[in-house]
Design a binder for these strands. Sequence first.
DNA 1: ATCATGCTTAGCCATATGGCTAAGTTATGC
DNA 2: GCATAACTTAGCCATATGGCTAAGCATGAT
Lengths: 119, 119
Amino acid sequence: MAKHDSRLDLLFTALGDPTRRAILTRLAQGAASVTELAAPHDMALPSFMKHLRKLEDAGFITSTKAGRIRSCALSADAFAPIETWLDAQRALWTARLDRHDDYVHKLYRRRQDETESEN
Amino acid sequence: MAKHDSRLDLLFTALGDPTRRAILTRLAQGAASVTELAAPHDMALPSFMKHLRKLEDAGFITSTKAGRIRSCALSADAFAPIETWLDAQRALWTARLDRHDDYVHKLYRRRQDETESEN
DNA sequence: ATCATGCTTAGCCATATGGCTAAGTTATGC
DNA sequence: GCATAACTTAGCCATATGGCTAAGCATGAT
């Protein structure tokens, strides 16, 4: 299906799951080990690890292994691409609204001119 | 799996597909009919309609049918919930960084005090 | 040396997703 | 009124996703 998964695809779909969003929220407050992260989630470890994997694939988190403990941390700026996309989207939208305002405004003025010329 | 799909789930997963993001980008510039929207996408209509359906389920777009033509438009504020989530996320993150700065700062001062008392 | 801890790998399962074709249905246009 | 345009419905297919168990493998504690 999605054959080469653009960055945005990975980012947005990673956010499209409550478990993964919860992980990010937790990590926003500081790094943690896999078992620490998993604790609040009623889920077998391997299932949980798949979520971590997706977050890491998306670039939201990084992890390093020290001894038998893997420590996960939010990667700074991971949200940048999606913020950028959202900004662009908003820009288009407001530009369009402005044009629309403009159009309405012109209509209004034309209407006024016509009304005036009637007098 | 996801049994009752929270709003954010719908919103983010809807954005996790290039076709759907393209549709939103197109719609940001103004309303359009289904066939107009579908034109740039090399895809059978029913497949394309599924994407529209997801966008509508998520609340990103609204559509109304006039005669045989269904017209789609971006719904204002559709992005609000995800902006809110992102803001909250950012808030946590920066709060944590601040605390960290604070910690480093205290460490630094303590170190200075110790150094001074050595003299 | 042995045992528990903390992952990790492998593999299974059900459902969801994203694509398709074929066959409706409902206006419009001629 | 008949064809065409613009969806719409139904159903099929392959792959992805999100969960599981069972077993493996290092590392740390005793």
